[in-house]
């Protein structure tokens, strides 16, 4: 962890004066559920990329492909799984222990640590 700053070193009023520094805050540690990417089913529609509130969908911009998740920042909210059109019906079974390569899945959420 970065060294914490003293009270004289931080901007006054609790302000954040550098733009875009949220990347330094690793929110991945908050995650109780983890999205799992089923590459084979992905139609690369970028719905997940559009909706992810933490900019945690990794894309290959050149080839216009969704490639995975930035798990250092993904909070496991499940929004990607929810908006994924391929996955639409599967998200309702989020509690099930489905295997990582279940053919019905594009993205699904599985419990952290229980991912196979």
């Amino acid at each position: 962890m970065a060294k914490l700053k003293g009270w004289r070193e931080i901007p006054i009023g609790g302000a954040i004066v550098e733009a875009g520094n949220a990347v330094e805050y690793k929110t991945g540690g908050w995650r109780a559920f983890r999205p799992v990417f089923g590459q084979a089913q992905c139609i690369h529609c970028f719905q997940c990329w559009l909706f992810c509130p933490d900019s945690s969908i990794l894309v290959d911009a050149e080839n216009e492909k969704m490639v995975g998740f930035d798990l250092e920042h993904c909070k496991g909210c499940g929004i990607c799984a929810s908006v994924c059109p391929v996955n639409a019906k599967v998200i309702r079974q989020a509690g099930e222990q489905l295997s990582r390569d279940d053919p019905r899945l594009c993205i699904r959420m599985i419990e952290e640590g229980k991912a196979k």
């Binding site: 914490l4 700053k5 003293g6 009270w7 004289r8 931080i10 901007p11 006054i12 009023g13 609790g14 302000a15 954040i16 004066v17 550098e18 733009a19």
Partner: peptide
Amino acid sequence: RSLLDVDSPMTYGALHFYDYYYESKRQ
């Protein structure tokens, strides 16, 4: 500083946990 200064964007009201709340109050 000003929120309307588009050249140096900034945030007011961010969460301060036990790691920074007290420093802010100390100020």
